[in-house]
Design a binder for these strands. Structure first.
Length: 495
RNA sequence: GGUCGCGUGGCCGGGUGGCUAGGCACAGCUCUGCAAAAGCUGCUACUGCGGUUCGAAUCCGCACGCGACCUCCA
């Protein structure tokens, strides 16, 4: 727990809209719950940003020395069948065996989700529970809500009685909504004939005969309501009250508001001490969303095969791009911004490679560089509500030190070099979760080939045949291979 | 319509009243056979109009512009 002495960690609690010092309920343990994906389609970059935010949170808490139980669910029940059927022949009743089995869809997109998480180097959660795996817990929760008088059955479904709840408890705190305003603004009356109030929401839904995913319950065959799974599973694995709940801004209402209400109605306690919400990734100022048609998948991103993309970008470029913006701000996607991030990341990683080769010129710390101060500022930035852009800005100060030392223009002591190595390994790899993406190592034959050309060019240069040496360099450049002469010799990379 | 938020230099973006954010781009210099890489230096902004203050990008008000949520959405 030595790391816990590194100053207090402040996070913006979206419940209070204030920056608060984070104090876990039962240190050194921390309970973290993040709303996971609904696995009925491919995740897009906007989704990735949200999970990235909480990946960094998880990494930082761990770095601080906390023992984090990180729970991120998979939503695999709800309205899957309806979505799948959308756009299909609505008249013909398809035989059951001709349809995709819902769990087939779930498995497919769960696999895809995991692939994307790995691609962007996101750590796996401690527990990844599924809604279908926790039906009993959800049914039990519905029972508790009903026993306390905040749920009512209607036509095989069970609804949460929002007006009754709101009369006895604060409701709408998280999203800043007043129940009167809500009532005044209601417009859609479709499908609410069973509800006593338009504000009520289903906690158990009766399944139509054609519905494939349904389970027996005290109220007949059905499936759990949209918001219930998170409440049931967070309660099960983290307790009735736990430390941090994260998710995208767009989940604040109604999803998270409903979670709070459900937990209070069922167990009498407000479930979450710190709410954290990540902001949206936008494209031309508009939220990236499937309905906007402006989303693209990680695969399209890597290949550049999308009308919004001028070229492909690596997963780490995108990760770095996102981390250069604070999680609570909207981030606008653009090719120019991604290219800037690509260059910046390249420089950062090059400096890290240089750092590994660096030797101190004296045993003592040098006077020319304040490495301990740099480390302190990096910590302070992260402790200040996960301010990754400021932390990265500090790291570039370190990059300057490293390059200057490598150029012999700054005399770093061995203690400073060692401290820089530790700082960069910790911050870049462990906290920011960046990793080396080497093309050369992926393809030994290509690297061998280029190395041979590098040797030929060196020989030509040695005999002052610059026409020949430049021809090698230019030809390789034409093929997208860029040579870089450094003090340690020539390296190459793709353009 | 209701609620909340945003508007920063060529671009992206941080910024918790005073002190250089940072990255990319651009320009000059050093290094280099030339170039690239690397280093150094320069580029000093905060939508508009009022107000509070010794002092505001930062607080308050108004205006304009933009967005998110209010329905599944990270």
């Amino acid at each position: 727990m030595a790391e816990l002495k590194r100053g207090p960690f402040w996070i913006t609690n979206t419940l209070t809209r204030k920056k608060e010092e984070f104090k876990p309920l039962r240190p050194p343990h921390v309970g973290l719950y993040v709303c996971g994906p609904t696995v009925y389609s491919d995740v897009h970059l906007g989704n990735v940003r949200s999970f990235l935010t909480f990946d960094v949170l998880y990494r930082w808490l761990t770095h601080l020395g906390y023992k984090v139980r990180y729970v991120r669910n998979i939503t695999d029940v709800g309205h899957l069948v309806d979505d799948i059927d959308a756009g299909e022949d609505k008249i013909a009743k398809r035989a059951r065996l001709e349809q995709l089995e819902p769990m087939e869809i779930v498995q497919k997109y769960t696999n895809g989700f995991h692939d994307v998480m790995r691609l962007f180097n996101l750590q796996a959660p401690s527990i990844e529970p599924t809604a279908t795996g926790h039906l009993i817990e959800q049914i039990e929760m519905v029972k508790r809500i009903m026993a306390n008088g905040y749920g009512y059955e209607a036509n095989g479904s069970v609804y949460f009685d929002v007006p009754k709840f709101a009369a006895a408890h604060p409701y709408g705190e998280l999203s800043g909504r007043k129940i009167e305003d809500q009532l005044a603004n209601t417009r859609d009356t479709e499908g609410m004939e069973d509800k006593r109030s338009p504000l009520d929401f289903a906690i158990w839904k009766k399944a139509e005969p054609m519905h494939l995913m349904k389970w027996p319950s005290p109220w007949g065959e059905g499936f759990p309501g949209w918001h219930l799974e998170c409440s049931a599973m967070s309660t099960k694995y983290l307790g009735q009250t736990f430390d941090i709940h994260g998710g995208g801004m767009d989940l604040k209402f109604p999803h998270h508001e409903c979670e709070i209400a459900q937990s209070i109605a069922a167990d009498g306690t407000s479930p979450v001490r710190y709410w954290m919400h990540g902001n949206m990734l936008t494209v031309n100022g508009r939220k990236m969303a499937k309905s906007e048609g402006n989303g693209f998948t990680p695969e399209e991103l890597l290949t550049g095969n999308h009308k919004l993309l001028e070229k492909g970008y690596s997963a780490m470029t995108v990760r770095f791009f996102m981390l250069q913006c604070h999680y609570a701000s909207t981030l606008d996607f653009s090719n120019a911004a991604l290219q800037a991030a690509e260059k910046g990341l390249e420089r950062l990683m090059a400096a890290m490679a240089t750092l590994e080769r660096l030797q101190g010129v004296t045993p003592e710390p040098s006077s020319g560089a304040d490495v301990p101060g740099l480390a302190t500022r990096c910590h302070a930035a992260m402790n200040d509500d996960l301010n990754t852009p400021v932390m990265i800005a500090e790291l570039f100060e370190g990059v300057r030190m490293i390059n200057s030392a490598n150029d012999g223009k700054l005399a770093l002591g061995q203690a400073d070099v060692d401290a820089l190595k530790e700082l960069f390994r910790n911050m870049v790899f462990l906290v920011l979760g960046l990793k080396v993406e080497s093309v050369a190592k992926d393809d030994g034959a290509l690297d061998g080939l280029v190395q041979e050309f590098i040797r030929m060019r060196a020989e030509a240069k040695a005999r002052k045949d610059f026409a020949a040496s430049d021809r090698v360099r230019d030809q390789l450049a034409r093929l997208g291979i860029v040579l870089k002469d450094t003090k340690e010799g020539t390296t190459w990379e793709r353009a």
